Amino acid sequence: MTAVRIEIRSKHYRAAPGGERKAVLKNLALELGAGEFVCLVGPSGCGKTTLLNIVAALDRDFEGSVRIGGRRAPRIGYVFQNPRLLPWRTVRENIALALPRGVDPAYVDHLFDVMGLSAARDAYPERLSLGMSRRVALVRAFAINPDLLLMDEPFVSLDPPTARRVRELLIRLWRERPHTVLFVTHELREAIQLADRLVFLGPPPTSVVADIPVTLAREARDENAIEDFRKALQRDQPALRGLL
C-alpha cells in the first residue's frame, strides 16, 4: 500500500500557437494515505483528467512534484473513461499484455470470477457489452497489483443499475486488497458510495476547495443514506453548492 503526495504549483495550456498560456491547475496540494480511496469531485473542464495524467507521469509539463510511496518507479494502474481494449485480442490476451512478471495466475482467475467474466475470457471485445468491457478494465488494473490506482470516470455512460453493480464489485475487490485509489467523478452520489474522502475541485485555475471525510459506514451506504449525506453536504457546506 502506498501513500501519495501531490503538489502542483501550476499547470498551463497554450490555447493556440502564439496564444496566451491558460492556467488549468494552480497551487493544488493533495495527500492520500496508504490504502485510502479518495474521490475527486468537480465540474466538467476543471482539470480532473489533467491531474490524473500528471500523477500517472503521462504529462510532465507542469511545475511541482508527485511522490508515490517514495518509489522511483511506482506501479500505476489507470482505468480510463474508455475501456481501451484491443479489438484483435481476446479478453484473456488483453489482460495478459498488462501483466508484469510474477503475477499469480490464481489471483487473475479470482478477479475474473469476482467480476463474473470467467465465461468471457476467450471472447473478443466486440462481443462484450459496455458494462462487461468496464469490468475487464477493472480486472486489468487490479491484476498488476498497483501501488496506486487511478480511475477517470470509469463508469460513465452505464445505466444506473449497471453502474451501481460495477461500483459494488469495485469496492469488493478494493476491500480484499485496499490499494491507494484516486477516483475522478462529477457524480456526487457515486463519490459518496465509494470514497473514504471527497476532495472538491473548483473551476480553473483549479485548486482544492474542500476535503471532506465520508463518515458513513460502508455497510450502510444504501441509496437513502447516500442521498441523506448529499443533502447534508448541501446544507452544511454552502461554499460547495455551486459544485454539487
Score class of each variant (00 low, 15 high):
176 E>W: 08
99 L>K: 08
190 E>A: 07
218 R>F: 05
106 A>M: 13
180 T>C: 14
116 G>W: 03
117 L>A: 13
188 L>N: 12
170 L>Q: 14
19 G>C: 08
189 R>H: 12
190 E>F: 00
63 E>V: 11
194 L>W: 05
76 I>Y: 03
53 N>I: 10
88 W>M: 08
134 R>N: 08
119 A>D: 11
120 A>W: 04
223 E>V: 09
208 V>Q: 03
172 R>K: 15
110 H>R: 10
114 V>L: 09
121 R>T: 12
113 D>G: 07
6 I>V: 14
153 E>F: 00
208 V>T: 08
22 K>C: 09
129 S>P: 12
215 T>G: 15
162 T>H: 10
220 A>I: 07
105 P>G: 04
40 L>T: 15
5 R>L: 15
133 S>C: 12
41 V>W: 00
93 E>K: 07
114 V>M: 03
213 P>R: 04
115 M>F: 08
110 H>K: 10
160 P>D: 07
241 R>E: 13
195 A>S: 12
242 G>D: 11
225 A>Y: 04
94 N>E: 00
232 A>V: 11
240 L>R: 02
186 H>A: 06
52 L>T: 12
156 V>W: 01
68 I>E: 00
127 R>N: 14
96 A>Q: 10
59 D>N: 14
65 S>M: 15
211 D>N: 02
119 A>G: 07
150 L>Y: 00
69 G>M: 07
201 L>N: 04
98 A>S: 13
30 L>K: 01
42 G>Q: 10
61 D>E: 09
183 F>C: 08
77 G>F: 06
101 R>H: 07
142 F>Y: 08
84 R>A: 13
85 L>K: 05
133 S>G: 15
13 Y>N: 11
206 T>D: 13
127 R>K: 02
93 E>A: 15
156 V>Y: 12
125 P>E: 10
223 E>A: 13
201 L>A: 06
74 P>G: 05
156 V>P: 04
95 I>D: 15
6 I>N: 05
207 S>W: 01
211 D>W: 04
227 E>Y: 09
56 A>F: 02
120 A>H: 03
83 P>C: 02
207 S>L: 05
47 G>K: 03
76 I>L: 10
150 L>C: 00
149 L>Q: 13
95 I>R: 08
169 L>N: 14
210 A>V: 00
131 G>C: 01
171 I>V: 13
211 D>H: 00
112 F>Q: 09
18 G>I: 13
191 A>E: 00
207 S>R: 06
157 S>K: 13
223 E>R: 11
236 D>I: 01
1 M>C: 09
92 R>I: 10
71 R>C: 02
221 R>E: 12
95 I>V: 09
16 A>G: 07
92 R>C: 10
104 D>W: 06
210 A>Q: 01
23 A>L: 14
23 A>C: 03
214 V>W: 10
215 T>M: 11
38 V>D: 04
15 A>R: 07
170 L>W: 10
187 E>P: 11
16 A>N: 13
193 Q>F: 12
62 F>Q: 04
221 R>K: 11
180 T>Y: 04
96 A>D: 07
211 D>Q: 01
70 G>T: 03
176 E>Y: 12
237 Q>F: 05
37 F>L: 14
117 L>T: 06
235 R>W: 11
72 R>G: 09
212 I>C: 03
84 R>E: 11
